[in-house]
């Protein structure tokens, strides 16, 4: 029978409400206008932003706002079986939901007729890549100087062995009973990505949602730290000229 919530220890040694080790860095690529890297457990994901820039083809431009293009893609070596470099249906769906989430934050109306490209590359995948991707992409957008209403940060929760758990790892995704990835705008308190599969009762769902929120806020702090430390490298802040 399942143990009580306090003592249940997950396969990778984590407690139910524990994130995997994580780190976020920004400004990793020289050519891109903005870039970021996230590591979350075994996940290693990079994101680059180009733009705002002229949109092609011209007949597709939007007169009112910028068009956000988003590609989520996995490298052939990112999984334990080789993945064909050609985008799969899964990657296309994830590109779409990630785009929808980021679109809510970016002030697209500031750049009519332009496009902003967001490229996400999963170099190693280990569960919950879509939410980690959003977290990195939003840092890359900020790094590119693109105005946003808020950051976007993602996290997942799930159910394994009858326990509601935070930050679904690879085995938990494959063998668990439910998976709930979410992304939020942490200051505006809005949900911008929500997917679920598996089975949860209403009370389990609430518990999972709240756990995912808690994890997202922790990762939000890591986003803030990555950006703040980047500016600090440029010297102690002292605007007044001597």
């Amino acid at each position: 029978m399942s143990k009580s919530k306090e003592e249940y220890i997950r396969r990778d040694g984590r407690k139910v409400d524990e994130l995997r080790p994580y780190s976020i860095r920004t400004g990793i690529f020289k050519n891109a206008d903005g870039s970021a890297e996230i590591r979350l457990g075994g996940n290693w994901i990079v994101a680059a932003v180009y733009g705002p820039k002229e949109h092609f083809p011209k007949f597709q431009i939007s007169q009112d706002e910028a068009i956000l293009n988003c590609r989520y893609h996995m490298a052939p070596y990112s999984t334990s079986e080789r993945k064909s470099p050609k985008p799969s249906r899964r990657e296309i769906e994830l590109s779409k939901v990630i785009k929808s989430a980021l679109e809510k934050a970016v002030l697209l109306e500031a750049f009519p007729e332009m496009s902003i490209d967001v490229y996400i590359e999963v170099l190693q995948a280990e569960g919950s890549t879509r939410v980690a991707s959003i977290t990195a992409a939003s840092v890359a957008l900020a790094d590119a100087g693109i105005p946003m209403r808020d950051m976007v940060v993602g996290c997942s929760a799930g159910k394994v062995d009858g326990h509601i758990i935070l930050d679904v790892g690879e085995y938990e995704d494959k063998e668990g009973e439910a998976d709930l990835p979410i992304a939020i705008m942490p200051n505006l308190k809005k949900i911008v990505l929500l997917q679920m599969d598996g089975k949860l009762t209403h009370s389990e769902f609430r518990e999972a949602f709240e756990l995912a929120l808690k994890g997202a806020m922790q990762l939000y702090e890591a986003q803030v730290n990555a950006l703040v430390s980047k500016v600090k490298e440029m010297g102690e802040i002292e605007e007044a000229e001597e």
Binding site: F29, N31, A32, S35, V46, A47, A48, Y50, R71, H73, A75, P87, D117, Y119, E121
Partner: peptide
């Protein structure tokens, strides 16, 4: 090329 590589590298 990953599209992160350069302005002109497209998927």
């Amino acid at each position: 090329f990953l599209p992160t590589a350069s302005f002109y590298a497209e998927p």
